[in-house]
């Protein structure tokens, strides 16, 4: 069995997540797109683990999941804090540092 199809699918998902990060304005949805990109890379890691016949890829995917969980916790807390002070979850509204 060939894993090329899996890797191509992971590339497509990564691209979709990338476009989402660039186009969406809602900070929560932007975050979801980042998660989509992480998941796509995980799929590639697991597929390559199967390709090469060792489990290092699966371990890497496991670590990506752990880091993603920590990242989501902190990121959502930041979004909550910004929403509390500015009453908005849009990434365009948090632009005070620009001036």
């Amino acid at each position: 069995m060939n894993v090329t199809a899996y890797v191509v699918l992971s590339g497509i998902l990564f691209t979709i997540g990338c476009v989402g990060v660039l186009t969406r304005r809602n900070a929560i949805v932007v975050f979801m797109c980042v998660e989509l990109m992480l998941n796509a890379s995980n799929l590639a890691l697991v597929a390559f683990a199967r390709q090469h016949g060792n489990l290092d890829g699966q371990i890497a995917a496991f670590f990506v999941m752990v880091v993603a969980a920590a990242e989501v916790v902190v990121g959502l807390a930041i979004i909550m804090t910004i929403f509390r002070t500015r009453r908005s979850a849009s990434v365009d509204d948090a632009s005070l540092l620009k001036y």
Binding site: M1, N2, T4, F14, T15, Q51, G53
Partner: peptide
């Protein structure tokens, strides 16, 4: 997307070793 799909589609990975052993 085009770069990824075309690039990944062109490389031949060969048959997967599989994880039966591991």
């Amino acid at each position: 997307g085009l770069v990824l799909v075309l690039g990944l589609g062109q490389i031949s990975l060969g048959t997967a070793v599989g994880l039966e052993n591991a």
